[in-house]
Design a protein around this nucleic acid. Structure first.
Lengths: 245, 245
DNA sequence: CAAAGATGTGTAATTTTTACACAAAAAAGA
DNA sequence: TCTTTTTTGTGTAAAAATTACACATCTTTG
């Protein structure tokens, strides 16, 4: 894409054979790594697996895979997710690429990090693989590769996104109580929130549907259950203008 | 990174030779493309160059280059920037990767988009290359590759970032008037803002240093000049908690 | 010296955010 | 069945932030 000699007349150095050009490019192995978040016992967790590299024996790594020839990055990430959790229709978004040449002991590998959010209870499958497990985000360390850095980045990304978009609902069941919702926000943001103000805030958004059901099997007074009104949200997404830093 | 057979005992399929593993990965040409933004005549502009591919003859493309062996993506983007603008210390940040297998006519190429902001007047160099020029963002179209999509994405990214971080100052001279600052925000966000409220907002942030100088050579009453107090900003960066969508 | 054009400033109304306490419901255990 | 415990559910007042809005001043230009 760099033009080497700008002083020649343009048509004299137009490249005719794009294929040949690309064939001459250096090539790099590219992978995707997924930070798959779930929420359980009022804690944010991430799905990890024991590394299959002797070099990282005993260390956890994120779920990832190579990107196939002619595969979209999004596709590759989705493939990893589906193979591992058996789930469709899962929230998934690209966070960013990591390219430290020393990040993989086997040589240069560029990886693109994805963040995924799912309801842990819908993920019955394949967890019997006992090297695969949900790990609390707060006690993670000693991961393989640069995966700790990737998790940290994805976590920051999530903290930001959850405040601006209704992502959190992906981590809960379809029906949830306001308490569960608040616990989710408190756990992810690492703060405690005033219950009345929290409820008032969501009430004023008018995006929760009261389905006239109550929590079941809770060891205390049951709360009302709600669904998130995705349809209304999609219609009313407002653009926000406000300078604040 | 995928473990093939979870039912064998773990140590039996630990991979000893990480190098061999990586050598077996499919490899992809990777490039970086920079959306380099500048501000001039109250318009947001982006630096583009005529494509050197016959396939895209006459179309503009972003500045980009291949990523070298063992080069960080950030490095590669910075290299492109420096080669083309001659500038150091320029704001540069990764936006995201684009991986459509059909995005390059020469075959599969993954590119990582970067967004850069600079003061157009500091960029005297190399612009004499007459295929290189600043193009108003609002009238861009028919770009080579998926570069229009990349510019759009970078522009949205910028619109968001400028509201939450003091990025805009990278597009202005070190000394600027409040009017210039407001013009910048209006141009990038595509809205018009109330002058008194805009000034009140920045006054309340207390991050502008009044340097007791006035604009020179303006065809009207000159305004006061300010600098942005980066030092104070760095110290006081507040974490923002607020749910809003 | 008049006209044109941009700078610079304050206040009142509205909206949003924050802090804070108590009664009612259900479950658990005596 | 009654008492205790725990959690739900709700309103108001103060403070802070945002919005809408108009006029006098300064500088250049002709």
């Amino acid at each position: 894409m760099i033009k080497k000699n700008p002083y020649e007349k343009p048509h004299e150095h137009l490249i005719k054979d794009a294929k040949k050009l690309v064939q001459a490019y250096p090539k790099v192995p590219v992978t995707v790594d997924c930070a798959i978040f779930g929420f359980e016992e009022n804690k944010l967790k991430v799905l990890v697996i024991k590394s299959d590299l002797e070099y990282y024996q005993g260390h956890y790594s994120l779920l990832g895979d190579i990107v196939k020839d002619n595969e979209e990055l999004d596709q590759a990430a989705y493939r990893v997710l589906k193979e591992r959790t058996g789930m469709n229709d899962v929230f998934l978004d690209q966070v960013r690429a990591f390219s430290n040449p020393a990040r993989h002991p086997g040589g240069r590998v560029i990886t693109v990090a994805y963040c995924s959010l799912l309801n842990i209870n819908h993920h019955e499958l394949k967890i019997h693989d006992n090297d695969l497990n949900w790990h609390s985000i707060s006690t993670l360390k000693d991961m393989a590769f640069d995966h700790k850095e990737i998790v940290d980045e994805c976590y920051r990304w999530l903290q930001k996104m959850i405040q601006e978009h209704p992502l959190g609902f992906n981590l809960l069941a379809e029906k949830f109580s306001l308490r569960e919702l608040q616990n989710l926000y408190e756990a992810i943001l690492g703060v405690s929130l005033d219950r009345r103000n929290f409820r008032k805030k969501f009430a004023s958004m008018d995006l929760l549907i009261d389905i006239n059901e109550m929590e079941q099997d809770v060891p205390h007074r049951p709360g009302k259950l709600y669904k998130f009104n995705f349809e209304k949200y999609e219609k009313s997404k407002r653009k926000w203008i406000g300078i604040d830093f």
